[in-house]
C-alpha cells in the first residue's frame, strides 16, 4: 500500500493517535464521572476518590429497575437473535439456492430493502394499535417479534452473501453422494457458513440490545429494556448525572464483550457486502 516517509509519516502517526484519542476520550471521561459523587461532577473536579455509589444506586436502589431491564434486554436480544438467525438463514438459503420464480425472489428482496430504508417509527404507530388489539402491547413477545422483523433484512442479505460464496459443486457432490436437498443444507452448507451465522448473530444481538425507538413505545415499566431505562435516567425531573453515566457505562458491556470475542466476525459481517 501507500508508504509514508519522514515528516509525512510523523504527521500520519500524530493524526492517528489523535483520532484514537478522540474515539476513546469521551468514553473514558464518562466512565470517570460514573465514579464520582453528584456534587463532584457538578463542580467539574477532575480527580477524586472513586466511589461505586452510582453503580450501587443504578443496580440496587428502590427507584431503579435496572437489573430487571437488563434481564428484559437479555431475553429480547437473545430470543430475537436466535429466531432471526433461523428465519433469515432459511430464507437466505432459499433465495440463494432454490429456483424461485423471479418475481418472488426479486419482490422479497426489494421489499426487505424498502423496509430497511424506512424509519422504524413509521411502523411503530400501527404496531402499537395491532398489538393493543390482540392484547400483546407492552409484552416482551411483541418486542421480540418486532426485533426479529427489524433484523431480518440484514440477516437475509448477509447469509445470502455467505451462501453465494459457497461453491454449488459442494452441495451437488453431496446430493450425488446420497443427500436429499435438506440433508445437503443441514450437513454440508450450514456447517460451512458457520462464520456467517456467528457474524449475523453477533450483529443481530447488538442491534436488538441497542434498539430504542420501538422498545420505547411498545414496553411498559415492567418490560422496559436497557436503552429505555437509560433514556429515563436522563429524562427524569431531577437529572442524576452520576447514575446516567454509570448506566451508560454498564449498557456498553455486552457490546464491548462481543467486540473482544467476536471482533473478526463483526468486521467480516459489516464489510462483507460492501466490499464485493
Amino acid at each position: 500500500m501507500l508508504v509514508l516517509r519522514g515528516y509525512s509519516r510523523l504527521i500520519g502517526i500524530f493524526l492517528l493517535t489523535l483520532s484514537a484519542f478522540i474515539i476513546v476520550a469521551p468514553f473514558l471521561w464518562v466512565a470517570l464521572q460514573s465514579f464520582k459523587y453528584e456534587i463532584q461532577i457538578l463542580q467539574g473536579t477532575w480527580f477524586t476518590e472513586p466511589t461505586l455509589h452510582n453503580y450501587v444506586d443504578v443496580l440496587w436502589s428502590q427507584r431503579s429497575d435496572f437489573l430487571k431491564n437488563v434481564l428484559n434486554s437479555m431475553i429480547v436480544a437473545g430470543v430475537s437473535t436466535i429466531c432471526v438467525l433461523v428465519v433469515g438463514t432459511l430464507a437466505a438459503y432459499s433465495l440463494a439456492r432454490l429456483r424461485w420464480k423471479r418475481w418472488i425472489a426479486a419482490g422479497f428482496l426489494a421489499w426487505t430493502l424498502v423496509f430497511n430504508m424506512i424509519p422504524p417509527l413509521t411502523l411503530v404507530g400501527p404496531w402499537f394499535l395491532i398489538f393493543r388489539e390482540i392484547g400483546l402491547l407492552q409484552s416482551l413477545f411483541a418486542l421480540v417479534l418486532t426485533h426479529i422483523t427489524l433484523n431480518l433484512p440484514m440477516t437475509v442479505w448477509m447469509m445470502m452473501a455467505y451462501f453465494n460464496e459457497l461453491p454449488r459443486d459442494i452441495e451437488e457432490a453431496a446430493m450425488v453422494d446420497g443427500c436429499r436437498r435438506i440433508d445437503a443444507f443441514w450437513r454440508v452448507s450450514l456447517p460451512l457458513v458457520a462464520p456467517g451465522l456467528i457474524a449475523a448473530g453477533v450483529l443481530a444481538f447488538v442491534f436488538s440490545w441497542n434498539e430504542f425507538a420501538v422498545a420505547l413505545n411498545l414496553t411498559s415499566r415492567a418490560t422496559a429494556t436497557v436503552p429505555v431505562a437509560i433514556a429515563q435516567f436522563s429524562q427524569q425531573y431531577e437529572v442524576q448525572n452520576g447514575q446516567m453515566a454509570a448506566a451508560s457505562v454498564l449498557s456498553t458491556i455486552p457490546a464491548l464483550l462481543l467486540m473482544f470475542f467476536g471482533q473478526k466476525f463483526i468486521i467480516q459481517g459489516l464489510t462483507m457486502g460492501a466490499v464485493k
Binding site: A173, R180, V188, P191, L192
Partner: peptide, 20 residues
C-alpha cells in the same frame, strides 16, 4: 430420480470436497 437415487458418483472439476 434425484441424484442420490441414481446410484452414480461424480468427480467435479473443482473437486467439491467438503471443507469441514
Amino acid at each position: 430420480l434425484e441424484p442420490r437415487e441414481r446410484d452414480i458418483a461424480m468427480v467435479f472439476q473443482s473437486y467439491a470436497l467438503y471443507p469441514h
